[in-house]
Design a protein around this nucleic acid. Structure first.
Length: 505
DNA sequence: GATTCTTCCTC
DNA sequence: TTCGCAG
DNA sequence: CTGCGAAGAGGAAGAATC
């Protein structure tokens, strides 16, 4: 099939409102793809290149519009895949240039519509309002099978291309081929958020489970005898980064395992290290990371995906009590709140609240798991704002935040945020900022420091980029404050106090 | 050889 | 990672 | 309720460049 058909389908999807209509367009295309190109088409329409190209935003931007664009479409899906694979295989000195040339060659062979699609695909910004989840639905539609079934296969396979090939070829029978398999990582189960334990109790009902939420990185462990591998949240193989964890798993008294947990580093006092330091340990050989296990998907020949959570936790306790994440099961509001406070006091980022009976719902951000994280709120002044893109085009969106420096009377930039703004806020802030414009460049409008935003954030980070040496982690706007002037915003000292309390500096 | 840029990755 | 909007 | 897209922080690896 011509690559252009996929590119045109992507454009059609982007221009079509309505999820069902997008799914129908996806299904119509997928039904027509030749057998050997089905996996490729499914990946591309999900926004996945399928390779680590070593070609990213800068290269795509540099080459955009350079090649005139082929008059007639000639690239097939197979040919594009072949070229992607060739680019991904390049390495060593000179490979950067070779990659750029190869990508340029691909652009030169592409029509204008294909060039646009290629650039979006390579930088991972398809923006067609449809990604893997809609491709799953499209596969179900194309073959008349239940979407839920296709979805399950996708969770287990972690690769939309493989699922597309199987479902399109064999329908229900194709789906049935996917099962929980050692060294085939499954998409991790995800959580929604709750403000506090009271909300979690209200939403999940009691009793529920609360466990420490550790500020490390997600790890899925697969063990088959001496063979042990670890996978990240995005299913990358991170085995080599966490040798201590691998050895700990080796010692566990089970031949076969699939476990879900969090890897984190601890300081000499036994307190968890800040996230930045855990990530540094990850890159050091023998960097001494610990694993806290919070779920078990398989123990020896038992698959536990559909087993109620409390039984999966019991399996962890029986198998690896030293690695089981601290947990309490309670329906009592006071006990739940106390457990949360204790988790914070121990230096953790919060708690996870989990339903006792839920299966391991791989890949879905369901309501069975709720994360409750410590949130800080301070008031900062807006120093500048950047023009938005996509549905925020025409609005000043991403704002630069500053804390007051009482020593100098100036403002110290601590980072940016585009989060938390409603359309009404975007409309309002655009007018307010433009009315206070001091200067501008291509993307940024610098403003008089007068608008005060209440900003929520989770942590303070060490920064080499920002002048105060500190930055905000996961900053988002809560509201604009018309009751406060810039002279009253929080100080860099207040931010530094948080960093010190958290052991960040 | 040292620094900078780009890409990829974690949250 | 957080959040708001569209469906 | 689900899926998507708006774009943030740092850190490391590898390639390019000074």
């Amino acid at each position: 099939m011509l690559f252009e058909e996929v590119a045109k389908t992507s454009v059609a999807i982007a221009q079509t409102a309505g999820r069902k209509k997008k799914i129908a367009l996806l299904a119509a295309l997928l039904e027509r793809v030749p057998v050997e190109e089905r996996a490729i088409a499914a990946r591309h329409l999900s926004g996945e290149v399928g390779h680590k190209l070593g070609v990213g935003y800068a290269t795509v931007a540099e080459l955009r519009g350079q090649a005139p664009g082929a008059v007639a479409a000639s690239l097939t899906l197979a040919e594009v895949e072949r070229r992607f694979a060739a680019i991904a295989a390049m390495g060593g000195s000179g490979s950067g240039k070779a990659r750029k040339e190869a990508y340029g060659g691909l652009l030169a062979a592409a029509t204008e519509i294909e060039q646009g699609f290629l650039g979006a695909l390579v930088v991972g910004e398809l923006r067609q309002g449809a990604l893997d989840a809609l491709v799953v639905d499209a596969l179900a539609l194309a073959r008349g099978v239940e979407a839920r079934r296709v979805r399950t296969a996708y969770m287990l396979a972690g690769d939309i291309g493989a699922v597309a090939a199987a479902v399109l070829a064999d329908g229900e029978a194709g789906i049935a081929r996917f099962g929980l398999t050692l060294f085939q990582p499954v998409l991790p189960m995800l959580a929604q958020t709750a403000d506090d334990t009271a909300e979690a109790l209200a939403n999940l009902g009691g009793p529920l489970s609360l466990e420490h939420k550790l500020d490390g990185f997600r790890v899925q462990i697969h063990k088959d005898g001496d063979a042990i591998r670890a996978y990240s949240r995005a299913l990358n193989d991170v085995t080599a980064s966490i040798p201590d964890v691998i050895e700990a798993i080796r010692a566990l008294p089970a031949h076969q395992l699939i476990l879900d947990g969090e890897a984190i580093a601890y300081g000499p006092s036994g307190r968890p290290l800040p996230f930045q330091d855990t990530m540094k340990r990850k890159s050091e050989t023998g960097g001494q990371l610990s694993l806290s296990i919070f779920d078990a998907l398989r123990v020896d020949d038992q698959t536990l995906l559909a087993t109620p959570a409390r039984e999966r936790w019991a399996a962890i306790t029986a198998l690896a009590p030293a690695h089981a994440v601290p947990r309490v099961i309670t329906g009592d509001a006071a006990e739940a709140a106390a457990f949360y406070e204790d988790a914070l006091a121990r230096g953790h980022e919060g708690v996870m609240a989990k339903s006792l009976d839920a299966p391991y719902d791989a890949g879905s951000r369901g309501a069975a798991w709720l994360k409750i994280k410590k949130v800080r709120r301070l008031d900062f002044v807006v120093l500048a704002a950047e023009w938005g893109s996509g549905r925020r085009r025409g609005w000043l969106s991403n704002i630069h935040l500053g804390a007051r420096d009482p020593a100098t009377g100036t403002y110290v930039m601590l980072g940016k945020t585009f989060k938390g703004m409603t359309d009404a806020m975007l409309e309002w802030q655009t007018a307010q900022f433009l009315a206070r414009e001091l200067d501008r460049d291509a993307h940024i409008v610098f403003v008089r420091p007068e608008i005060v935003a209440e900003v929520a954030f989770n942590d303070v980070l060490r920064s080499t980029q920002y002048p105060g040496g500190l930055a905000l982690r996961h900053a988002r706007v809560v509201r604009y404050r018309d009751d406060k002037t810039a002279a009253e915003v929080d100080t860099i000292d207040a931010v530094r106090a948080i960093a010190i309390a958290d052991g960040v500096v």
